[in-house]
């Protein structure tokens, strides 16, 4: 960044770049290795696993899609995640608005109680949540995952959205009321648009949570027609047994969309992660 003034500084920069290069290598090598392997034949994977493919073949991808309904799992994940994100963000926007702008008895107490959800490790609750979902008759349904994922992202969305609505100027709300807008109209057509930055952050984080969640998917579903993409990955070893090419292809199909979407929207994702770490 600055001109090199001394040998010491130059060495420091050398190590800085070396460190950066190592971090990049660590992050991408495993993924690139998987992608390259997906184009090799089984024989090649076993004989020289580190080399470039001798000829690029898409057979693995054809076989992977024949052997496992990956698009079905992808679709399941998409449905569950979109619905849980929408439910989470709508419910928490409503609550965030009321907590930020309205006065009512017991407000602080209720907020402290809801904040407790931040400090409960959800893996501790596996057994009761399993029992609850089963008793509600929701075992092995997409609805179970939609509700659980909406709940898992509740603490972080609550913090983000309350502080977002708190930052919307009071005058806008008052002006809407003076213009004769009711509670609902004020919320949906004045407050929500003003809070879109926070809504975007909360949506991104809720989406990531649902898209990647594994534990509850494993616990609460069993059949193939509700299986989500992360869960389906754990079946690959047995599903593809000795067809390594197909397994590598299947893993590639599963991760590439996330990588592309993230690379395109990385600024927004970064901003959301930062917003999520700043606690109310």
């Amino acid at each position: 960044m600055k001109k090199h003034t001394s040998a010491g500084r130059r060495t420091a920069w050398f190590f800085a770049y070396l460190f950066m290069a190592l971090c990049v290598a660590v992050a991408v090598f495993p993924i690139i290795w998987v992608i390259l392997s997906s184009f090799k034949s089984n024989q090649e994977i076993l004989s020289n696993g580190l080399s470039w493919p001798t000829q690029w073949s898409f057979d693995g991808y054809r076989q992977a899609l024949e052997m496992a309904p990956i698009f079905q799992y992808f679709l399941n994940s998409l449905i569950v995640t979109v619905l849980s994100t929408a439910l989470n963000v709508l419910a928490l926007s409503m609550a965030g608005y009321v907590f930020a702008k309205k006065q009512f008895r017991g407000k602080n107490l209720l907020f402290s109680i809801l904040s407790l959800s931040m400090v409960i490790p959800t893996t501790a609750l596996l057994s009761p949540i399993y029992v609850t979902i089963t008793k509600l008759g929701l075992y092995d349904t997409k609805a179970a995952l939609v509700l659980v994922y909406a709940a898992l992202s509740m603490p972080i969305s609550l913090m983000i959205l309350r502080s977002t609505f708190a930052g919307v100027p009071k005058e806008l709300e008052e002006a809407a009321y003076i213009d004769g807008a009711g509670f609902l109209r004020t919320f949906f057509s004045v407050m929500m648009p003003c809070a879109r930055g926070g809504i975007a952050s909360a949506s991104v984080l809720a989406f990531l949570e649902g898209w990647n969640e594994f534990t509850f998917a494993l616990l609460l579903t069993s059949s193939g027609n509700v299986r989500t993409l992360p869960l389906s990955l754990s079946y690959f070893t047995s599903q593809f047994s000795f067809n390594y090419t197909a397994m590598f292809a299947a893993i590639t199909i599963a991760v590439i969309p996330s990588i592309i979407v993230f690379t395109v929207f990385s600024e927004q994702v970064n901003a959301s992660i930062v917003a999520g770490s700043v606690k109310g």
């Binding site: 920069w13 950066m20 992050a27 290795w33 990955l233 590598f248 893993i251 991760v255």
Partner: peptide, 29 residues
């Protein structure tokens, strides 16, 4: 330093894809 934004994005990739995908990658590694 030159390329810092690139490093920030690329280093985040393993955290954006699901844990189960990383796990499957390492099963093979």
């Amino acid at each position: 330093p030159r390329g810092w934004k690139f490093v920030r994005v690329v280093y985040m990739i393993p955290n954006i894809i699901s844990q189960s995908a990383i796990a499957m990658i390492f099963v093979n590694m």
